[in-house]
Write a protein that binds this DNA or RNA. Structure first.
Lengths: 271, 271
DNA sequence: GCTTGACTCTCAAGTAGCTCGAGACCCCAT
DNA sequence: ATGGGGTCTCGAGCTACTTGAGAGTCAAGC
């Protein structure tokens, strides 16, 4: 029978960890002196301790280990657990590798630029969103503002309030400045399916814009400099080895009269 | 100005996380109503939030992000930080991969054996340890017990108490049952350098057994079945792609009169 | 028998990055 | 005035321990 310090020395596990394993029932001491509370361990407990360590080494949590050890090892269950773990770990590995490649991309970027960019591109998960939208081919990007105005003008009096900032979807496979196929979407509750025509006589369509992963960045400033944001997001997508997966979106996050200037969010569905 | 729920919707960050970022100074709300405590955010804060997310995505902690953002980005420091992170992540990746291969080795083992072994092999870090030792070539493994007895008989009267269980080192490059080159080591304090000869007339030598990683398992039971443990540890080392790195050790963890039977720990320095 | 120093005990708090819940307050529409 | 949904603060919970405070224990030397 060893005292905890000696047992710690021969097992090479810190005293505090041994106490912890004891307290949570994983490795109770062989005996506890009822007078002094001293824990006493025996060498015969090393196999159990080693099994705990080995399972921990496989990435199992102490709780999982406990149920395995006390459940007398139903081999099938252990197999299932390990298969799960294996999937989990290989998922973690690919995630880490992606993180590594992101870090390295960022390092290259810093070495070439000498500094960090003002705006970042991040990957986000978009929820599917139900909208009322109008789609039209316009001959100049500035007409988009008019479309939005018309849309609001039709919806507000009808008592339909957008539930999130409105946004545009660009359906052109490539950009043509004098023939833009654009859809203006107003997020609304799921139950809203009809709306009056716009002042320009256009009809709303109710549909659900699909969700999924998207590369997202924001542009802070006038519309004439928005190309920066598009350039940034494009090279980020390339750097991270992703692919376009749907029409890009442009969300208008500020009121037209915001003193801090307009803020636009650009979202490219990817992968 | 958005309330926290709206800002959460457009940033797709949970309210609780926004509050947390605000509380720890990373992203304080643009304004807080002093009457109600309501937090108000503006779209102009999205760039900062995105930067936080991007840096978090690179694996930086919130504290590191804070110091980078508030320290106005000394590019050199950021570079250093990222290089550190990069090394850290690739280290984590190789560790995870090793864990994965251990899990898969274990899975294979279960599929072939149908159950889990009673004893485990684990990798531990050995500390260098100062010992008094006697080395001799004996013609039968059973003579090792006599050597240990002689060693104790010499040390105890001289007031030298071992500080840890004594162990044997096997110096043979290969095993020969009738000619075993064995060293019996008694761990002692650093300051102990001399001891009387043993009853058999053998001289102690003071030396430090080097530390390092070792594959460790314990054998519970008589010496005649210790081959199981050697077999186990040998195949474990092979399965995990390690190499022997020094003479194996056998530590005797129990007193000869322990009612639960003897317990022996076997350690193979590796890599 | 007393002191000293090493060891051990219990209990509480800290770690990172949030999430969740309780109980109270606020805002807006009817 | 009321009701429902949003928001507030504060505290606990998550993992696997580590660290520290304050008190009790053990063995050896005087």
């Amino acid at each position: 029978m060893y005292r905890i310090g000696e047992f710690s020395k021969i097992s090479r596990i810190p005293v505090s960890a041994l106490r912890y394993y004891g307290d949570c029932g994983l490795l109770p001491p062989q005996a506890i002196d009822p007078q002094t509370g001293y824990r006493y361990y025996s060498a015969a407990q090393l196999p159990r301790l080693n099994r705990i360590l080995a399972l921990k080494d496989l990435g199992l949590s102490l709780e999982e280990i406990g149920s395995l050890l006390d459940g007398e090892l139903p081999a099938a269950e252990l197999r299932g657990m390990l298969r799960l773990k294996s999937a989990e770990i290989s998922h973690a590995v690919t995630e880490q590798q992606q993180m590594l490649s992101r870090v390295e991309a960022r390092l290259r970027l810093i070495e070439s630029e000498g500094t960090m960019p003002e705006q970042e591109v991040v990957l986000k998960e978009l929820d599917p969103i139900h909208v009322l939208s109008i789609r039209e081919v316009v001959d100049a990007p500035t007409k988009i503002g008019d479309l939005i105005g018309d849309g609001f003008a039709a919806l507000m009096p009808a008592g339909v309030m957008p539930t999130a900032p409105c946004f545009a979807l660009y359906h052109d496979p490539e950009f043509k400045p004098d023939e833009v196929d654009v859809e203006i979407a107003f997020p609304v509750g799921d139950e809203v399916t009809v709306a009056p025509n716009t002042p320009g006589g256009r009809a709303f369509q109710a549909r659900t814009v699909p969700g999924g992963k998207a590369a997202v960045t924001v542009h802070h400033g006038g519309y004439d400099t928005i190309d920066e944001a598009y350039g940034r997001i494009g090279s980020w997508i390339a750097d991270n080895g992703l692919k376009f997966a749907g029409p890009p979106q442009e969300a208008y996050l500020t009121q037209p009269d915001d003193p801090a200037g307009p803020v636009t969010e650009i979202r490219f569905p990817v992968e």
